[in-house]
C-alpha cells in the first residue's frame, strides 16, 4: 500500500507535509497548529462485535488527529456513498453510531454529503471522513530517539480478530470484541502528564504493531526492541490467534496508540494512562536502540527474532 501511495499519489507532490506521510498534515495557526486529515473506510461486515463502520469512520479520523497531538477536534466532515437498496434501518443505525462516537470525542460532524450508486457498483457502503483539530505542539511519527521507551495503551489484536471472526463466521463470537474508540481524551491525558517527553505517536491500525513501529523506526533511522512477555493481549485474542495461526502483532487495532516516550517518563505516563478507562492495560513493551534503520527485534524469552511488515490480508493456516 505504501508503495502504491509513493509511486502513484505522491508523484509530483512537493509539499513537505504530504511527503512526510504522517497521520495528518500540520499547518501553523498563530502560536498553535491546525492539523487536517482524511480517511476512507470499507469493512466487511459493516456491523461487528464492538462497533460498526460508522463508529470506525469517526474514530479513525479522531485518532489520526490525536496521534499528531491534535486532541481538540474543531470539525469532522462525513461523505457517505451507499449502494442502492442498502437497508435503511441499518443505515440509520450506522449514522446514529457515528454520531455517538462524535459525541464521545467531542468532535462535531459539521458537514456531509451522500451519494447513491447503482446496485452492484459498490459493496454496501463506503464512508469518507475528514477532520480538523488544534494542537499546542505537533507530535510526529518520526520522532523516535535512541533509548526512548515504547508504550502501548492497551491489549493488541482485538479489532482485526473480531472483524475476521465475524466476517468468516468462525463461531468465536462473544469473546472477541473490537476496541474501536476515540483516543483523543486518552492522548490528552498522556500529554498533560508527561508533555514534551512524548517524542512520537502512532495508532497501530492496518498491519498492526509491526507495521506501525517499522514505519516509525524507518523514518527515525533507528531500531526497535520489543519484549514478547510485556505485550498485553486478552485471553480470547491469544486463543483465537493460536487457533487461526494469525499473530496479533500484525493485526489491526482501532482503539490503541503506540507512544514513544523518554525513559524517565515511562512510570508517570503509565500511571496517567491506567487511570483512564481506555488505558487500563497500558504497558511498556520495548525500547528504541541504535541499529539498522527500521529493524524490529522481538525477544521471545527463548531467542530473538526479527519482525517484518507483511503485505496483504493474513491467511489462516491449514493445521
Amino acid at each position: 500500500m505504501r508503495d502504491l501511495v509513493t509511486s502513484v499519489f505522491l508523484r509530483g507532490i512537493t509539499a513537505p507535509e504530504a511527503m512526510a506521510m504522517d497521520d495528518g498534515a500540520a499547518i501553523p495557526w498563530g502560536d498553535k497548529w491546525l492539523v487536517v486529515t482524511t480517511d476512507a473506510h470499507v469493512v466487511s461486515p459493516v456491523e461487528f462485535p464492538g462497533g460498526d463502520i460508522g463508529r470506525l469512520s469517526v474514530c479513525g479520523v479522531v485518532n489520526d488527529l490525536a496521534m499528531m497531538g491534535a486532541t481538540d477536534v474543531l470539525a469532522l466532515t462525513s461523505a457517505v456513498i451507499v449502494e442502492e437498496g442498502f437497508d435503511l434501518a441499518r443505515l440509520s443505525r450506522l449514522s446514529e453510531s457515528a454520531r455517538r462516537a462524535s459525541d464521545e470525542a467531542s468532535a462535531p460532524i459539521l458537514a456531509g454529503d451522500t451519494k447513491v450508486m447503482r446496485r452492484g457498483e459498490l459493496d454496501g457502503i463506503v464512508l469518507s471522513t475528514s477532520g480538523l483539530a488544534v494542537a499546542e505542539r505537533v507530535v510526529r511519527d518520526a520522532g523516535m530517539r535512541v533509548d526512548d521507551a515504547i508504550v502501548v495503551t492497551g491489549t493488541i489484536g482485538d479489532h482485526g480478530l473480531a472483524v475476521l471472526a465475524a466476517r468468516e463466521r468462525l463461531g468465536l463470537d462473544g469473546a472477541l470484541v473490537s476496541d474501536v474508540a476515540p483516543l483523543n481524551g486518552l492522548v490528552r491525558t498522556a500529554l498533560a502528564a508527561v508533555g514534551d517527553a512524548i517524542h512520537a505517536m502512532k495508532d497501530p491500525t492496518r498491519g498492526g504493531v509491526v507495521s506501525a513501529l517499522s514505519e516509525m523506526a524507518t523514518k527515525a533511522g533507528v531500531a526497535v526492541h520489543l519484549s514478547a512477555q510485556a505485550i498485553p493481549m486478552s485471553a480470547p485474542v491469544r486463543a483465537a490467534s493460536e487457533l487461526l495461526g494469525i499473530d496479533p502483532l500484525w493485526v489491526a487495532n482501532e482503539g490503541k496508540a503506540l507512544i514513544v516516550v523518554e525513559r524517565d517518563a515511562v512510570e508517570p505516563l503509565l500511571r496517567a494512562l491506567r487511570d483512564h478507562p481506555l488505558g487500563r492495560d497500558a504497558a511498556a513493551i520495548g525500547h528504541v536502540a541504535a541499529g539498522e534503520p527500521g529493524a524490529l527485534l522481538l525477544d521471545t524469552g527463548f531467542g530473538t527474532r526479527r519482525l517484518f511488515e507483511r503485505d496483504g490480508e493474513p491467511l489462516p493456516r491449514i493445521c
Binding site: D247, T300, F302, G303, R305
Partner: peptide, 15 residues
C-alpha cells in the same frame, strides 16, 4: 511445518 514455524516464531533456531 508447525515445528519450523514455532521455532522461527520463538527465535529457537538461533539459540
Amino acid at each position: 511445518g508447525s515445528h519450523e514455524q514455532a521455532m522461527a516464531r520463538y527465535g529457537l533456531r538461533q539459540s
